[in-house]
Amino acid sequence: MDKALVLELPNDISSIEHAVEYVMRHCSSCTDYARRLNLNFRVGLTEALSNAMLYGNGSDPEKRVRVEVDVSVEEVAVRVTDQGVGFDPASIPDPTLPDNLTKSGGRGIFLMKTLMDEVQFNDRGNSVTLVLRLKGEATV
């Protein structure tokens, strides 16, 4: 890995936008896949952070979220870890099914999986690693 960045964020959703912009600036050397970074990575990271703060940490202001970013010439990888008890990502239904389309929630995990080349949860379910590759196959 060429460039590493570690952030410890307060469990405050108003911090997400600034944190994402900060990480995006850290990735600014990845001009070869700028559009995929700007859409796929930006939205994927936003989803991971909001999941961690709202569901993982249960909106508890005493808890924190750790963000670890590794940037190389071939990929950007980010691990987002909360201090919650974890969850089973397989339990989230497909939000694009007709019965789920009019529900207001349930699209975060779907967008992460669709927009990133790799999404891996740890066994406990409180840490997710997102990878976007220069020559990846994810949408866009």
């Binding site: 930006r42 939205v43 909001s50 529900k103 779907f110």
Partner: peptide, 11 residues
């Protein structure tokens, strides 16, 4: 950009 929460509020 919009995230899933933004999409959800529109729905």
């Amino acid at each position: 950009y919009i995230d899933s929460s933004g999409l959800g509020v529109l729905v």
